[in-house]
Amino acid sequence: MSLILDHVSYIYGDDTTLAVKALDDVCLNIPDGQFVGVIGHTGSGKSTLMQHLNGLLKATSGSIYFNGEDIYDKDFDMKKLRSKVGLVFQYPEHQLFEIDVFSDVCFGPKNLGLDRKEVELRAYDALKKVGLPDELFYQSPFDLSGGQKRRVAIAGVLAMKPDVLILDEPTAGLDPKGREEILEQIKKLQTETGMTIILVSHSMEDVAKYVDRIVVMNRGKVMYDDIPKEVFRHYKELEEVGLAAPQVTYIMHALKQKGLAVDVDATTIEEATEQICLEILH
């Protein structure tokens, strides 16, 4: 279930003088089962890019292939694409509307025209997958905490059984513990189901720990596309475009500069601890 973007460009406000190139010649290949982090600051084009993947926006030029099929082909079933490439937007408040959590999660599969039993089965399954406690199923979604709302929103998309799950800033507005919980849940979901997950974020520290690959967006272009370690080597360039590598990267680089023999590629606390202990205690 791969997604391929071939020289995709998107110009916003094409017919006016205010035309902005929101995406500029983006080429990406996202294979099956990968956990990808897409990083960029506000206005870098990362959200625009995600809306292309499920056909909400149509590229000005270039093509997108889902499982080898051109999604801009006139015979292509856009509705099916939207159920296969699930997109969860930043604010759960933008999608929750039903009287209780369970009915809200049913909305997606119901739109797919499934029978009632299947709809409810999927909704239940999805709510279980995001780790929402049973006693909340019949509560109003508006009474939930921020983290719980986020889970319901994710379940609402999961219930459509997508092959690819895109999460736009799933941690925005949550407190540190809430952020960690939701990211752990997503990671678990990925390992258990093996589904392709694309995590959009502006926080390097959040994603560094979880993803297999990082795509850095800047001014509508793909700036870096590599495994986290390789991307963080460019920490100076990242800083210039308003992104920061994890704090650990800075510490390791500073130590190295001062003559300590440490590996600058350490990105997590554990790796760094090990490196520093090795160097100082021996």
């Binding site: 540190p176 704090q247 650990v248 606390i269």
Partner: peptide, 11 residues
């Protein structure tokens, strides 16, 4: 208390 510490402090 469900709070985080900066990475430096944690390290």
């Amino acid at each position: 208390l469900r709070l985080d510490v900066p990475q430096v402090t944690l390290l």
